[in-house]
């Protein structure tokens, strides 16, 4: 569906996208994972023909986006990170406008608009203006505007930012539904759980470079020996982190919201040492569990930093 070859984007001396090569296959949900500023949105903007490509090429459904952008864009539906809708037009008018831009007319346009509204669960609010919508409803309308013309490729740039759990679930379910209906989806996020739950394949991007690409299992296999010890604690002092990090076998340790996370190649062996240090420092332990590597630890292992850095 998409071939990305040697893609480079520079801003002055900075390289935002550094020689990325990717193949995204028809019918898959492809995740682009990376922290803020990793180059995900820049990559997506080049895929969508919204940003000049400095070097390399993007072939969308056999069409070079630089050589024939209008033809390529007919196959594309972009859900931008920002809620890019017109606040003073109703939900229906917004979708109709974007439907017309994609070339839909007459009864087909009406059918598709109703279908898009139905799909995102906004049929009952079709004649209301988005100003009155909740954040989740606006996000759903943002998605509907990209679906109205049944694009072969749907590009979603962090579509769940800043919304409640219910709307997030609705959106993630919708994405899976779209995929089952035959759409290829590129999904970017820095929410690891989302990417993990819906994507068939995942590319990890950091500092504009493609760090790794594959299925969840393939990525986990890259760091298969790593495990994570999760300790729920009270009265933890950040100074103790340094003590934990120098234990032999500990690759990294972090503390966030009362949860201490320790990445190691052998959890069984070092668990005793960890508990000893914590009890020595009078840290109250509420629970302890050991988990296999997830994408977060894969990311940490490959890039040396957390997704939330």
């Amino acid at each position: 569906m998409i071939k990305i070859r040697n893609l480079i984007k520079r801003y002055g001396q900075n390289i935002a996208v550094d020689n990325i090569n990717l193949d995204i296959y028809k019918g898959e949900i492809f995740g682009l994972l990376g922290p803020n500023g990793a180059g995900k949105s820049t990559t997506i903007n080049m895929i969508c023909g919204l940003l000049k490509i400095d070097q390399g090429e993007v072939i969308l459904d056999g069409i070079n986006i630089q050589e024939n952008p209008l033809e390529a864009k007919k196959r594309l539906g972009l859900v931008p990170q920002e809620i890019a809708i017109f606040d003073t037009l109703t939900a229906k008018e917004n979708i109709t406008f974007f439907g017309k831009l994609s070339g839909l007319r007459g009864n087909l346009l009406k059918e598709r608009v109703d279908e898009a509204l139905e799909f995102v669960g906004l049929s009952h609010s079709s004649n209301e203006i988005p100003k009155k919508f909740s954040g989740g409803m606006k996000r759903r309308l943002n998605i509907a505007c990209a679906l109205v013309h049944h694009p072969k490729l749907i590009v979603m740039d962090e579509p769940t930012v800043g919304i409640d759990a219910q709307s997030r679930k609705h959106i993630l379910d919708s994405i899976c539904k779209l995929n089952k209906m035959g759409s290829t989806i590129i999904y970017t996020s820095h929410y690891i759980e989302e990417v993990q739950s819906i994507c068939n394949r995942i590319a990890i991007i950091d500092h504009g470079r493609l760090v790794a690409c594959g299925t969840k299992n393939e990525l986990k296999n890259l760091v298969s020996k790593e495990e994570k010890i999760i300790v729920e604690v009270i009265d933890f002092n950040y100074n103790f982190l340094e003590e934990l990090k120098i234990i032999t076998g500990v690759k990294d340790a972090d503390f966030h919201n009362g949860i201490l996370g320790i990445i190691t190649s052998n959890a069984q062996n070092i668990l005793q040492d960890v508990l000893f240090i914590l009890s020595n420092n009078n840290v109250v332990i509420k629970s302890v569990k050991m988990i296999e590597p997830d994408l977060e630890s894969v990311f940490l292992s490959l890039t040396g930093r957390s997704l939330r850095d």
Partner: peptide, 14 residues
């Protein structure tokens, strides 16, 4: 600023 410009140009329009 609202990114509607960007969105409009993700459609086939010059």
């Amino acid at each position: 600023e609202n990114k509607t410009f960007k969105r409009i140009h993700s459609f086939p329009i010059k």
